[in-house]
């Protein structure tokens, strides 16, 4: 409990710092008036606008106002789309979250299974093949993989669509593409692209951890008690690799959201990443600031979840 309280304090601190950084963008990334006002506006128009937006107040007052609004879920109005930023993000979020979720599931399933296999049978030809091909996943940049997949599956073979979300179903404000065949066909390529790097990372980590744990004395002792290989590999060894693996998976889910900017651009996936790129192109500061805050919040939330998972996995942490 006490630990949780301490962690929540940290979360608050991080969020305040990030909010300050994203707020400063308003003040330091050029004058927002130049993009807000029509070309033929006079100096008086500019002054009126400045007054209306509260830009004449002190920095602290402005920050206070920004924070008050942000806490209430109000991040201002997009310069480009003239739409409230909160609404904008909410409409784009399902696409990104679904993409990230599908690719995380792919990454964890393939990464952990292949990693365990390579850890248990390090000498077999299959694990050697998996390991050497995983090098490609680590070293190829996301956009190259994306373009290659589009070329093979969308252009040459014409099996899967190259862009967009396909058919979506509206579930009370949450537009999902996971309920139609067309939606699944669309999500497959971007999700694989996004997951490839993570899969190989998880694979290599699980393998290394498995090899390490298999050398431990308690594994030898489990063998000496006549336990079956299955009980040893999955009951004893795998669980002991989970602490570092959970850390990395947690960090990587944050990474998936960050990398989704590139993947969404390549596949024209209508998520928050694509929205962010478009906002950058247009210097749409309210959108950028809100996105920054949103991503930071997500990261903090994930790392908090990971820390809480430690408690479930490792009893030694529960005590200390």
């Amino acid at each position: 409990m006490r630990y949780l309280f301490g962690r929540l304090m940290q979360v608050g601190l991080v969020m305040i710092i990030v909010s300050f950084v994203s707020f400063s963008m308003f003040n330091f990334v050029g004058d927002p008036l130049s993009s807000l006002l029509p070309e033929d506006a006079t100096a008086a128009d500019a002054d009126r606008m400045r007054e209306a937006l509260g830009l004449n107040d002190t920095v602290m007052t402005q920050y206070g106002r920004f924070m008050t609004n942000a806490v209430q879920g109000n991040f201002g109005i997009s310069y480009r789309l003239k739409q409230p930023v909160t609404e904008l993000i909410a409409s784009r979020l399902p696409a990104t979250l679904e993409l990230v979720a599908v690719s995380a599931v792919i990454a964890i399933t393939f990464g952990v299974t292949a990693g365990v296999f390579c850890g248990i049978r390090p000498k077999s030809w299959l694990s050697k093949t998996i390991l050497s091909s995983s090098l490609a996943g680590v070293s190829l940049p996301t956009f190259v993989i994306g373009i290659a997949l589009i070329y093979i599956f969308a252009v040459t073979l014409q099996w899967l669509p190259s862009s967009g979300r396909g058919g979506t179903v509206d579930l009370g404000g949450w537009k999902t593409s996971l309920l139609t065949v067309d939606g699944w066909r669309s999500i497959l390529l971007p999700a694989i692209t996004l997951s490839l790097f993570q899969t190989t990372m998880i694979l290599r980590l699980v393998r290394a951890e498995m090899l390490e744990v298999m050398r431990a004395d308690f594994i030898k002792f489990a063998r000496a008690r006549g336990l079956t290989d299955r009980a040893i590999n999955f009951g004893h060894a795998l669980r002991n690799t989970l602490v570092p693996v959970t850390t990395v998976i947690g960090m990587n889910i944050g990474g998936l959201i960050a990398f989704s900017v590139i993947t969404e651009t390549v596949f024209q996936w209508p998520g928050t990443g694509l929205m962010f790129i478009q906002a950058v192109g247009f210097v749409d500061i309210p959108v950028m600031a809100a996105y920054l805050l949103f991503v930071a919040g997500l990261f903090v939330l994930i790392s908090l979840t990971v820390d809480l998972l430690y408690f479930l996995i490792d009893p030694r942490i529960r005590l200390s």
Partner: peptide, 25 residues
Amino acid sequence: MRKLRGRRIGTIFQDPQSSLNPLMT
């Protein structure tokens, strides 16, 4: 051999610190 271990020949190792799985009761 696996069935011999534990059932007919038991083993005690040196370091009780590391002979037990730390994550299992």
